[in-house]
């Protein structure tokens, strides 16, 4: 009983102090990419490159940031090409969340310009199920979210997100901007033709976790950003 109480107190401390979660990428392609098209070749290259990278979520009680671990890249031979490859892990952006202020910012170079795309932290409508699995020793619950990357007319732009979160770590954050669940997301399945899985490999406790809010780029509301592509 004493052990259980100490364990629960230490989990509570973990949530208060802050964490750094490292995620590993694994491809989960539902279709074989065609070697003939440029985008197909990119998908094949992504399959090779992305599993060699780490993706890091930093979070404290109220804020989070997520991006790929830039220190792992010595010299990207072609930054534009590298950015497109990162797109296959949705890691061509920096994601910042602030739950107390209900703000979420995606800093991204899109349509030839650097943007800070602003949305509400509480924007996502998850469906939480009763399914569970254990990840890194934590019991995780399954939640599902569906959306379309485009205007809804292209069926191939449909995405299904499956998040496995642990209520034991009471931080409503996760990778690539998926958030708002009653616990930290330890595994994320991003399902589409060229989907992937991000699974946590390491959770580090960090004292005074300092989260940087993106400052560069033109601010744009998510609704206006969506109109840019139509």
């Amino acid at each position: 009983m004493r052990f259980v109480i100490i364990f629960l107190i230490s989990l509570q401390c973990l949530a208060q102090q802050g964490v750094e979660v490292t995620y590993a990428y694994k491809t989960n392609y539902q279709k074989a990419p065609s070697n003939k098209s440029f985008y197909g070749k990119l998908a094949l290259k992504a399959k090779q490159v992305l599993p060699t990278l780490d993706f890091v979520l930093k979070a404290n009680a109220g804020e989070s940031s997520y991006q790929y671990n830039q220190s792992m890249i010595n010299d990207a031979s072609n930054p534009e090409l590298f950015k497109m490859i990162l797109g296959f892990a949705k890691a061509d952006a920096i994601y910042y969340g602030n739950q107390p202020n209900n703000i979420f910012i995606t800093q991204k170079n899109a349509f030839g310009k650097l943007y800070k795309i602003e949305s509400a932290f509480s924007d996502l409508s998850w469906h939480i199920t009763n399914m569970t699995q254990e990840i890194l020793g934590f019991k995780c619950k399954k939640a599902v979210l569906r959306y379309n990357e485009g205007d809804g007319t292209n069926q191939n732009q449909k995405r299904e997100i499956v998040a496995w979160f642990t209520p034991k770590l009471n931080l409503p954050f996760g990778p690539i901007g998926f958030r708002g669940l009653p616990g930290l997301i330890l595994r994320l399945e991003y399902k589409w033709n060229f989907g992937f899985v991000l699974e946590s490999t390491k959770i580090k406790r960090v004292n005074d976790q300092n989260i940087q809010k993106p400052t560069k780029g033109e601010s744009i509301k998510i609704e206006d950003y969506r109109k840019l592509s139509r």
Binding site: P33, S37, F38, Y39, G40, L42, A43, E80, L81, K83, M84, G87, K108, A110, F111, G112, E149, G150, N154, N156, Q157, K158, W192, N193, F194, L228, S229, R230
Partner: peptide, 23 residues
């Protein structure tokens, strides 16, 4: 052609733009 292919394969609008512009 590269952009249309990417779009058909399900890339997001910003990815389609990046592919088209890069090519």
């Amino acid at each position: 052609e590269a952009g249309s292919n990417a779009e058909e394969m399900g890339a997001s609008p910003s990815e389609v733009y990046s592919v088209t512009n890069f090519v």
